[in-house]
């Protein structure tokens, strides 16, 4: 079992106007085989109008262990949200 087919991540655009969304993965020897497998596995019921596949190994992911340092700083910056600001009720269109 040394000759394993590489893993590819599959993204489907459900319809024009929407972004491609990750749906899962497939094994394939080359890009074309990956596209064909993705079509068979993930779009049997008109789930999409466009497919992306890319080698899983090429994805660079953040480490959950670093989540606090990456994402926590946003927690105390509520002034970035419009609801932080008090505007009198009689002021419209703002």
């Amino acid at each position: 079992m040394t000759n394993a087919l590489p893993l590819w991540e599959v993204f489907v655009r459900a319809k024009n106007g929407l972004a491609h969304k990750h749906v899962g993965s497939v094994h394939a020897a080359d890009p074309r085989m990956a596209l064909e497998a993705a079509r068979d596995v993930y779009t049997r019921r008109m789930e999409g109008v466009s497919l992306w596949v890319l080698p899983s190994a090429s994805i660079i992911a953040s480490d959950p262990g670093e989540s606090p340092s990456l994402f926590d700083p946003a927690e105390d910056k509520i002034y970035r949200h419009p609801t932080f600001y008090i505007v009198p009720d009689n002021i419209k269109h703002i």
């Binding site: 000759n3 087919l5 394939a28 020897a29 080359d30 085989m33």
Partner: peptide
């Protein structure tokens, strides 16, 4: 079939 597909991709 799997071996041939991998060999083809290696060559490509």
């Amino acid at each position: 079939v799997r071996d041939a597909a991998l060999a083809h991709e290696a060559k490509r």
